[in-house]
């Protein structure tokens, strides 16, 4: 499969990039391209214009600013893995970046691309020829979902590794459009609609420029657990990020558990935050929390693995992750 015809621009400033984005209708940002190039070959992406962010140096910086780390959207996963402050303060972020794909992708894949990654489905991530065997589904503009036949919407699965971690750290992202620039909590970036799972894929014509993560207090403990069939190359079947702020008596303060692979966007099981609040972690509490968490995920058969199995392993890795954070 060869790449389709398109035009390619490499603006040297953000303004220029945004102008081009605003000017043209069929226009897509390319970061590392590890996902986009495949989508183009499979004709899932048919943009006439690609705008590369390669020549905008400001987007590649990682800096410390006051109480936060600012990561430029074009930082590669390798940059993130090797950045000392991230190693020290955000072990879960480093782990999630390390867990993405295979080593051959991580020196070009970017964090921005990971955040903006499209949702996936076994009926969608296929070639044009493959898809021509059946009716077009919602995600490619059709009127049916092959996975959830009764549902009137697309349930394709969010499968990026890094966003759950960022959300559990309370990260915010900066989106720059032609008329405004806004900073929003990352969880608000995701729409929940499988067809257009995030603000940018919904057509906001914005560029994600940077991620801001507050530097946590020492008593914030975090980790990321990814479950996949092969320990490299594969997307997460389920990934869980846990970040818990402990108080002096080792009771849980704010506890954030974010799951990937379980819905059309990152999923935060709401009950669990409350369940853990002010409690000391113990085996029973953890297993109750994990049980409760999986009642709030609704996996569909968008991969070759059954939702029942997903739910079961979600429970296991959620409790494993909480246990690791709690040192149990």
């Amino acid at each position: 499969m060869r790449l389709p015809e398109f035009e390619y621009f490499e603006p040297e400033s953000l303004e220029e990039a945004i102008n081009q984005l605003a000017k043209n209708n069929s226009c897509t940002i390319i970061a590392g391209g590890t996902d986009l190039v495949v989508a183009l070959k499979q004709r899932l992406q048919n943009s006439r214009y690609l705008i590369s962010l390669d020549k905008i140096p400001s987007l590649k910086k990682i800096t410390k600013k006051d109480d936060a780390v600012i990561i430029g959207a074009m930082s590669t996963l390798d940059d993130i893995i090797n950045y000392t402050l991230i190693k020290e303060k955000f072990p879960a972020l480093r782990k999630a970046a390390w867990d993405v794909g295979s080593p051959l992708l991580r020196s070009i894949a970017t964090i921005g691309g990971n955040i903006c990654l499209n949702t996936r489905c076994r009926f969608y991530n296929q070639s044009l020829f493959w898809r021509s065997s059946r009716e077009e589904c919602f995600k490619v503009g059709g009127n049916i979902c092959h996975v959830a036949k009764k549902k009137n919407s697309c349930v394709s699965t969010f499968s990026a590794d890094i966003p759950p971690v960022l959300i559990s750290y309370g990260a915010r992202v900066k989106l720059v459009g032609a008329n405004e620039e806004r900073v929003i909590p990352l969880e608000n970036f995701y729409s929940g609609d499988g067809r257009f799972p995030n603000v940018i894929l919904s057509g906001s014509k914005e560029i994600l420029t940077e991620i801001e993560i507050p530097i946590p207090q020492n008593n914030l403990k975090s980790c990321y657990h990814k479950y996949r069939m092969r320990e490299s190359i594969d997307f997460p079947l389920i990934g869980v990020s846990v970040a818990i702020q402990f108080n002096e008596e080792k009771r849980c303060g704010d506890a954030r558990i974010i799951i990937t692979g379980a819905g059309t966007g990152p999923v935060e099981p709401a009950q669990v935050r409350g369940m853990l609040l002010n409690k000391k972690l113990n085996a029973n509490l953890i297993s109750d929390a994990a049980e409760a968490a999986v009642t709030e995920i609704y996996p569909f058969k968008t991969t070759l693995i059954s939702p029942r199995y997903k739910r079961e392993v979600a429970k296991i890795i959620i409790s494993e992750a909480i246990r690791e954070v709690g040192g149990i």
């Binding site: 790449l3 390619y8 490499e10 390319i30 391209g33 590890t34 190039v37 495949v38 590369s52 390669d54 390798d78 080593p103 051959l104 992708l105 020196s107 070009i108």
Partner: peptide
Amino acid sequence: GKPVSSCSLLAVK
């Protein structure tokens, strides 16, 4: 110096 899948990288990059 770093290994990369060249099928996933646009030549212009």
